[in-house]
Design a binder for these strands. Sequence first.
DNA 1: AGCTTGTGTCAACGGTGTTGACGTAACCTG
DNA 2: CAGGTTACGTCAACACCGTTGACACAAGCT
Lengths: 257, 257
Amino acid sequence: MTESERVPAERKRRRPTSSGVVLSADLIVDAARDLIDSQGAQAFTVRKLGAALGADPSAVYRYFRNTEDLLLALADRLIGESMAGFGPSGDWGADLRELGLRAYRSALRHPQIAAFSTIRVTGRPHEQRVVDTGVGLLLGAGFDEATAVRHYHALVDTALGHAALDAGVLRLAPAQRAADEQAWQDRYGSLPADEYPNLHRVREQLPLMAASAVERALDLLVAAMRREAVDRGAAESGATEREAADRVAGEGAERAG
Amino acid sequence: MTESERVPAERKRRRPTSSGVVLSADLIVDAARDLIDSQGAQAFTVRKLGAALGADPSAVYRYFRNTEDLLLALADRLIGESMAGFGPSGDWGADLRELGLRAYRSALRHPQIAAFSTIRVTGRPHEQRVVDTGVGLLLGAGFDEATAVRHYHALVDTALGHAALDAGVLRLAPAQRAADEQAWQDRYGSLPADEYPNLHRVREQLPLMAASAVERALDLLVAAMRREAVDRGAAESGATEREAADRVAGEGAERAG
DNA sequence: AGCTTGTGTCAACGGTGTTGACGTAACCTG
DNA sequence: CAGGTTACGTCAACACCGTTGACACAAGCT
């Protein structure tokens, strides 16, 4: 885990800090996550991290090249956590939806990280595991390699994109969020029917926009993929489909351990 | 435009700076955009902005409360620019796709701005115009009010979400981007077939993931909406039941507060 | 002409990430 | 059990950052 330390070799000389803590890459990642969770996103600082660890801030640089490197390691850990306990149900469409939702939720749980690091391909083990699973679901559904990759990409990026979007709302201070919402209602609440006829017509439905659209977007994506799979299945014979699905299911069970 | 100045009143005493430039909110927004466009996102700094303007950095605070206020004003301008020249073609699906793509492109054109400003509802005229147009397209396609709002929301948020995602890549310096891509290929290029069977199988298609998935996602969304519209048209009487079910299902996904 | 005051400038504060030098303690060798 | 290497924690410093309060001055009004 957390492979990209500054010095990739295993550590032997584990000297405790002045406060007695024995540092490690994992411990630092833990502290970073706790800091972000408890203090809020903008409270994350190398100096505060050092204080939370009971160590000099610069000690972090013995383990990570820079803060971004550290945040990437944190992002990968979150990916792993979000997928804990996930196992294919047999319905590839529902599984893909679940996969996207899990990515969304975990990204959203840590707004700062979501807005900053879901944008990067971490390329780390947890991420690779998820990609393998997701692509496997689509291959099992009968899509060819290129289409499976493209559809997986569209689905996951959509989930993460919504997360990045919604994370921004969470990053706002509560007071400002309330003010924003009020301003929104003020502006959209009373619309001139002649100038904005469509907005006027749907004015009673506009509060629907306050909720995240991620589930709806995922539903639509999966629906489109399902339809496409059915069309493909009608054209060819669906014999291969069941075999591949079995392969995916077996792999998911193995991952849990 | 640019409404949220520190002092909303119109300015009268326009004293030139030491370098002879006469400041204004618009001029500052212009300079900020030029700076971001030319120097890159992370080059944006109040101090550098001051230098680019030929003024003391603190002069900016006579026009905007803080940097975020300034960037919001900039975001507002971009919304207007992105929709310039848009006109419905008659194919509502294609128009919706175009609407989403325009939102995506304009957000992406200024990565730094996209990363944080797509999260805010500006509630200003430009935005209202876009919402009215998009909802109108869906109403014209035969969707009821609630569905039109929800589908518009899903489409636009997906486009903006992808923009926020892809903007992160653009925010990286070119050298780092290349290094990232190389690292990505190294990690995903040679994966053990036994551990990652699906990734191994699609390994030749993985470069497809380097490109943005926004068009593919929009295509899938529009395809799903088209299919739904056809179904609704075919069985007009059964619409009410499905609608009620939708409303119940949609209530679970509120943004966390 | 004189007064008010808006506005540009200056200096400063308290932060930030990051680095290079340094000492010391932990491990390896003998 | 002694000595040497050196990894790693610490310290001080650098170059930035956003933001603010005091100040000077010129624009505009009376």
